[in-house]
């Protein structure tokens, strides 16, 4: 098949069409993508599309207190009379920011350290990097984040730092295992033999081949980051009131269970939906880079 002129769309199709074809080969991945796009749109446009934007902040209206779901308040209202639908939408905002901050802080150093440790697998600094990573990995991420967050003053920023600290070693380990096996590939040997620099080999030869696994992990991890962030908030070490955070909402709402069930159940469902969405999306990303689908 001839590729039409070098139009922008043509090049794009040539390069990414196959990825999209592979992604959609599993229809459930499309559901995941749909959920995440939906959540992202709501999060981005929350101030403009939510019915009661003021409910996002310090707002009290005791006349509307703990109203069950109705047409005016589809998710009901909380103990201060704030609209829960609005707060959930703003909660997505916080969750996605958390994901973006944590992953952008932890993935890059994790990947670079993994590349170095994997490429120089028999050198002393590789062992040092990996042992440090092991120490972090040995502590469950939630526990580590909890202990770090408890030392710092509870705030959204500190919670993000705490989660990031727990996260980078997983990328180091992932990339380490990929790099230490790819370094034996013939194309790496060929580049070494002509005298290509280690930086070239790590970033131009090995990294592009690890990208698929990294992106898959990023997508799958997004769900986990949200969960841990919510857990931190739930125990009061994360985002502080009045920031609308799904974890905080569940925690506050739990005092009113079971009578005013909607206060914690709807935020909980929202978390489940996002995590599930990211997991399904992750499967699709995995398919995109898989060689078994042609």
């Amino acid at each position: 098949m001839m590729i039409q002129k070098k139009s922008w769309a043509g090049t794009l199709t040539k390069k990414y069409g196959r990825y999209w074809y592979k992604f959609k080969s599993n229809k459930i991945s499309l559901v995941g993508l749909g959920v995440i796009v939906f959540v992202a749109v709501i999060a981005i446009f929350a101030p403009w599309i939510t019915p009661y934007p003021t409910s996002a902040g310090l707002y009290v209206n005791f006349s509307q207190q703990k109203l069950p779901p109705s047409l005016a308040h589809p998710f009901g209202t909380d103990e201060f009379g704030r609209d829960l639908l609005t707060r959930v939408a703003f909660g997505f905002r916080y969750s996605l920011t958390l994901v973006a901050v944590v992953l952008s802080i932890s993935v890059a150093p994790g990947v670079v350290l993994g590349l170095i440790a994997g490429y120089y697998v028999n050198r002393w600094f590789s062992a040092v990097i990996m042992r440090i990573a092991d120490v972090f990995v040995a502590v469950p991420p939630l526990l580590l984040a909890l202990s770090v967050a408890s030392v710092l003053t509870p705030s959204a920023i500190n919670a993000m730092m705490a989660v990031s600290l727990a996260w980078w070693p997983w990328y180091t380990r992932l990339v380490y295992s990929i790099a230490s096996s790819l370094r034996n590939e013939d194309y790496v040997k060929a580049a070494e033999l002509v005298g290509a620099s280690p930086t070239h080999i790590m970033f131009k030869e090995i990294f592009p081949n690890a990208l698929g696994s990294i992106l898959t992990k990023v997508t799958l991890d997004a769900g986990w980051v949200i969960l841990i962030g919510a857990a931190l908030s739930y125990v009061g070490l994360g985002a502080q009131a009045p920031t609308p955070d799904l974890g905080t909402m569940i925690s506050e709402g739990s005092q009113y269970l079971p009578a005013s069930w909607w206060i914690s159940i709807f935020p909980a469902c929202a978390i489940v939906a996002v995590i599930l969405g990211f997991n399904l999306l992750g499967d699709g990303v995995n398919d995109m880079f898989s060689s078994s689908i042609k």
């Binding site: 098949m1 069409g17 196959r18 074809y21 592979k22 042609k294």
Partner: peptide, 14 residues
């Protein structure tokens, strides 16, 4: 006895 067997594969290109 195989008679007029036709098998294809669906891939991205077609």
């Amino acid at each position: 006895q195989v008679k007029d067997l036709r098998v294809g594969y669906n891939v991205y290109e077609g």
